[in-house]
C-alpha cells in the first residue's frame, strides 16, 4: 500500500527541450497531479518518474506518457510526476499545459 515509484524512458526529439533549466506545473489535488520538468541533453530522450498511490495501471502510464512525448514532439527532458489518482485524460492535459507554460506560452 505504500506509494509506488515508476520509471519510463522514451525517444523524443533532440533539442526539443524547454528554455529554462527547470519548470513546475500543477497541484496534487484529488484526481490531479503535478510535474517538474528538467532540461537534460540526453540524445532526445524523455525520462519520466511517476510517484503514485495507484496500483495496476503501469501499462496505462506507459501508453499515456508515450503518446504525450510523440504528440508534443518534445525531447531532452526529465519529468517527475506526483500523481493523486489522475485519469489518463487529466494526465495528458496537465502534461500539455506544463510544457506550454514551461515554454512561456499560456495555459
Amino acid at each position: 500500500m505504500a506509494l509506488r515509484h515508476l520509471e519510463f524512458s522514451y525517444d523524443g526529439v533532440p533539442g526539443a527541450s524547454i528554455p529554462r533549466e527547470w519548470a513546475h506545473s500543477g497541484v496534487v489535488g484529488s484526481g490531479d497531479m503535478e510535474v517538474l520538468l528538467f532540461r537534460r541533453e540526453q540524445q532526445g530522450k524523455v525520462k519520466v518518474k511517476v510517484c503514485t498511490p495507484v496500483v495496476g495501471f503501469d501499462h496505462v502510464w506507459e501508453k499515456v506518457l508515450g503518446k504525450f512525448v510523440a504528440d508534443s514532439g518534445c525531447g531532452d527532458l526529465d519529468l517527475e510526476i506526483n500523481d493523486n489518482n489522475a485519469t489518463p485524460f487529466i494526465v495528458s492535459l496537465r502534461l500539455r499545459q506544463a510544457l506550454l507554460e514551461a515554454r512561456g506560452g499560456e495555459s
Binding site: M1, A2, L3, W22, H24, V27, V28, E34, L36, C51, T52, P53, E80, N82, D83, N84, N85
Partner: peptide
C-alpha cells in the same frame, strides 16, 4: 517544488505526496 521537500510520512501510508 524543485527542492522536492515532500512529506517523509505520507508514502508509508500510500498517500500521494507534493513537492
Amino acid at each position: 517544488p524543485r527542492d522536492r521537500m515532500t512529506s517523509p510520512h505520507l508514502p508509508e501510508l500510500g498517500e500521494a505526496v507534493s513537492f
